[in-house]
Design a protein around this nucleic acid. Structure first.
Length: 817
RNA sequence: GCCGGGAUGAUGAAAUUGGCAAACAUAACGGACUUAAAAUCCGUCGGCCGCAAGGCCUUGAGGGUUCAAGUCCCUCUCCCGGCACCA
């Protein structure tokens, strides 16, 4: 007899909807638990990655509910973004209509998976009701000087025809379409995330329940490095600031290199014979893609400026060069070159025949003069050729030279970050309009709060070419200056969609809030998110931006905490035959088909059982049969019971039932520990399988006795978070009137776990040789005696006198002879 | 190059954190039921030797610490991920 999953799943999905089973509300009398999964982009269809992500979250939410927590488990849609525009170009569709249709389809699929969302809290970021608050927060940032416009070299994706933030450039390509990113000089809007560098780094230490990998990635991304800015004098008397993390090698600087974009280059070369060559070089470098420019160990391209600088520590006159490997964005865009102790400088010096001088000596490395070096020596050593610092270990010299330079006003200790400000303006239609107006008289003016939202106009022509689509909409662009009321123009760029997801978890706390982005009291109750679940691909995108937003909102008094996500679980990818599922590989397993053939419960169980949540999961068609078989076994157990009144069941005691009771309490303990100790769903499920297997060892008669039924009910309760529909059905068959999710998680009784005897393993010289059963109350000496008295053990000892006998209580005896 | 994470049966994986390696599941094989198949149930299932009792070996490789190592330490190989001419 098999269960009719289709009827059962539809039945319970309707009950949950009608009974508002998952509706959540503030209740100060109960501990809260905010369980959140990263909301999806509404592509229209869910894939296995979604199924896994949301199933994990669903199990946690349901488990915590059964533990008595007041659980908030919301879902929404990250609905702005390019695919809607691309669809608009392709099918002449309206992006909003298209997106909302996709939201609808996707929501239906989520409902079919039986996820326990409080749908009353649903948000879609593309609705004015939501993006109004993006604009609101943007204006607040503008007030604090944290949103600003500047001209700079930006990352440009030629295929998406828009700018990208640094975080959106993955290995030189666009995060969305992988097209090679080029540089472009543009005036764009930025958020000053760098104002939060220190806090973003320091607070990583408080994220005790985040995966190490994510913490490390963020730390590297922030890229704090300590060094010194050294002032080199130019011929015209101006100072050139050079950043280095190796002040200990300053006496080895034999030339200086500037980034081609460096501000002082043009003045330096003016009128010099090298001028034309330099300008050509700058032009050449500007043509290179970022990818080419930073690619590996290609030749170090560069050219001489004809100018010189004075090294302030020894007044040496050294040449100034340009090179493509020096980047304007990092440090000061100017470096001192120490070819003997920096590999890049070494290659450049070899290429262009520049002088070298050794300033760090190491016995181990064994070189005497620069000619002995085949590559730069970057290791530890003792200073030489370094004025008064000779003989100092270089680590110590770093400190000493830095302070010496500060005293002599020729340098200054400083910190540089890899993190850049967040470029947020996009030349696209389907995003939040940046709420700014340009007035010839008043300049850049923020849209007044009372005028929000600045709505996205409808019927905009989208071609994917020719700049911001909004710029072509006259009724949108032409407006009045809020200050002087004269005609003015609106900003036509829209915001990066990562803004939308940087605070949505707060909106879920009070999705209808109308005077502020969210209700402070509700947020105070629910936040921070207790458990956040999503893919690791957002390690330095969404997860960094959200931390930044939270800190800003804390600074303006909207929230009282600094970190949005207490615990983070990054689920592994779902693979097929060891490869990522993708359209181009044609190896996609569609959740829809699996739900049709097996039902949502079986799919959920399989995906949770096949691997721990953090690990990659290789999809296996056969594995799902196993999940199905197990659920059928449980189902048969429950169906075989007469519709009953539990008190009327015979209360018999058999050896089998005694074993089952023991197993039941053991299982409750094991499953609870697996859930508490990091959501080890796979082993939790294997525990439940073992309990069911134990029940199957009973005779059909025994299975109907009270103790067995208690164990069956326990199995249903333990299984409920994983397999919600079927467990609701079985719970009802067991005569229960209320939802299984209004029942409490079972508790185990120590008295059943207490054993009279303990089995001890006996090792002789480190090998297991025998086993003995000893009374639980036996003391060390008794156990030792019993072990030495054991016949098999005595054979192995063969009359020798034990040198050492170690007794590990409740485990083993180790004898050394 | 730097940083992080890995490597256990045919397969996905377990192993109370130093205490009987391979729980649970999948696949495979054998058996029961069946006219037959499916489903279901029972059994075998890391390798080698042995009729058996049993023994020896085994967690990427090598070494070490320990009564005891998949787990700790050192060296190395390979795989995955992030960053990368970051001064």
């Amino acid at each position: 007899m098999e269960f009719d999953f289709k009827t059962i799943e539809e039945k319970w999905q309707k009950v949950w909807k009608d009974d508002l089973t998952y509706k959540s509300a503030v209740d100060p009398s109960r501990p809260k638990y905010y369980c959140l999964e990263m909301f999806p982009y509404p592509s229209g269809r869910i894939h296995m990655g979604h199924v896994r992500n949301y199933t994990i979250g669903d199990v946690i939410a349901r488990y915590k509910t059964m533990q008595g927590y007041n659980v908030l488990h919301p879902m929404g849609f990250d609905a702005f973004g390019q695919p809607a525009e691309n669809a608009a170009i392709k099918n002449q569709s309206d992006p909003e209509e298209w997106t909302l249709k996709c939201v609808d389809w996707m929501k239906k699929e989520m409902l079919r998976m039986g996820f326990s969302y409080d749908w009353d809290r649903e948000v879609s970021t593309c609705l004015p009701d939501y993006y109004k608050w993006n604009q609101w927060i943007f204006l607040k940032m503008m007030e604090k000087g944290l949103a600003y416009k500047k001209a700079s070299y930006v990352n440009w994706c030629p295929s998406c025809a828009t700018t990208l933030a640094n975080e959106e450039v993955i290995q030189g390509g666009c995060w969305r379409c992988h097209t090679t990113v080029v540089e472009k000089e543009l005036e764009q809007w930025y958020l000053k995330i760098t104002a939060y560098s220190d806090r973003l780094l320091d607070d990583l230490g408080s994220l005790k329940n985040w995966p190490q990998a994510v913490l490390t990635m963020q730390k590297n991304w922030l890229g704090k490095s300590y060094g010194v800015e050294i002032y080199f004098k130019l011929e015209n008397g101006q100072l050139l600031r050079v950043f280095t993390t190796r002040p200990d090698t300053i006496f080895g600087a034999t030339y200086v290199v500037l980034a081609p974009e460096h501000a002082c280059v043009k003045e330096l070369v003016r009128g010099k014979p090298q001028e034309k060559e330099v300008l050509d070089f700058i032009e050449e470098v500007s043509q290179e893609s970022r990818m080419e420019r930073v690619a590996g160990d290609v030749k170090k391209k560069g050219c001489f400026t004809g100018a010189f600088a004075i090294n302030p520590v020894n007044s040496e006159k050294i040449s100034i060069w340009l090179a493509d490997y020096v980047l304007m964005e990092y440090g000061t865009g100017a470096i001192m070159a120490v070819p003997t102790h920096d590999q890049r400088d070494f290659l450049f010096a070899k290429e262009h025949g520049l002088p070298m001088r050794i300033v760090i000596q190491s016995q181990a490395a064994g070189y005497q003069s620069p000619e002995d070096l085949s590559e730069a020596y970057e290791g530890e050593g003792v200073l030489v050729n370094s004025g008064g610092f000779d003989g100092l270990p270089n680590e110590e010299a770093k400190q000493r030279i830095a302070s010496w330079m500060e005293e002599g006003l020729i340098g200054k200790s400083c910190v540089h970050w890899r993190l850049r400000d967040w470029l947020i303006s996009r030349q696209r239609y389907w995003g939040t309009p940046i709420p700014v107006i340009y007035c010839d008289k008043c300049g850049v003016v923020g849209v007044p709060y009372e005028d929000l939202p600045v709505r996205l106009p409808k019927n905009v022509e989208i071609s994917g070419e020719g700049g911001s689509p909004l710029a072509k909409v006259r009724e949108f662009v032409e407006t009045k200056c809020p200050k002087c009321k004269k005609p003015a123009r609106r900003e036509t760029d829209t915001m990066a969609t990562f803004i939308d997801s940087s605070w949505y978890f707060l909106r879920f706390c009070s999705p209808g809030a109308g005077t502020e982005p969210f209700d402070k009291a509700e947020a105070k109750y629910w936040m921070p998110v207790d458990q956040y679940i999503g893919g690791i691909e957002h390690a330095v995108l969404h997860l960094l931006y959200s931390r930044f937003f939270t800190k800003f909102l804390s600074d303006i008094g909207l929230v009282g905490f600094n970190e949005p996500f207490d615990k983070l679980l990054t689920q592994g990818m779902v693979l097929k035959d060891g490869e990522v599922m993708s359209k181009s590989r044609g190896n996609i397993v569609d959740p829809d088909g699996i739900i049709k053939d097996y039902g949502a419960d079986t799919l959920r169980l399989f995906i949770l059982f096949a691997a721990p949540p953090e690990a990659e999961l290789d999809w296996n068609d056969k594995g799902i049969d196993g999940a199905w078989r197990f659920l059928s076994r449980v189902w048969r157990l429950v169906s075989a019971l007469p519709a009953h009144d539990r008190s009327a069941l015979p209360e018999e005691h058999t050896e089998g039932l005694r074993v089952v009771m023991e197993k039941m309490h053991e299982t409750i303990k094991k499953v609870t520990q697996d859930m508490e100790g990091g959501f080890k769903f796979n082993t939790a499920i294997s525990g439940i399988i073992e309990l069911v297997n134990e029940l199957y060892k009973l005779s059909p008669q025994e299975q109907k006795y009270q103790a067995a039924v208690e164990a069956i009910e326990t199995a249903v309760l333990l299984l409920a978070p994983f397999v919600p529909h079927l467990c609701e059905e079985m719970w009802q068959m067991l005569g229960r009137k209320e939802s299984v999710f209004r029942s409490r998680w079972p508790k185990y009784d120590e008295k059943y776990l207490f054993k009279k005897d303990v089995e001890y393993v006996i090792q002789v010289n480190g090998k297991v040789r025998s086993k003995i059963i000893v009374d639980i109350h036996a003391v060390q000496d008794d156990i030792k005696k019993a072990a030495l008295a054991d016949i098999k053990t005595r054979e192995w000892i063969a009359g020798a006198i034990p040198k050492k006998v170690i007794v590990v209580m409740n485990k083993l005896v180790s004898i050394v002879v």
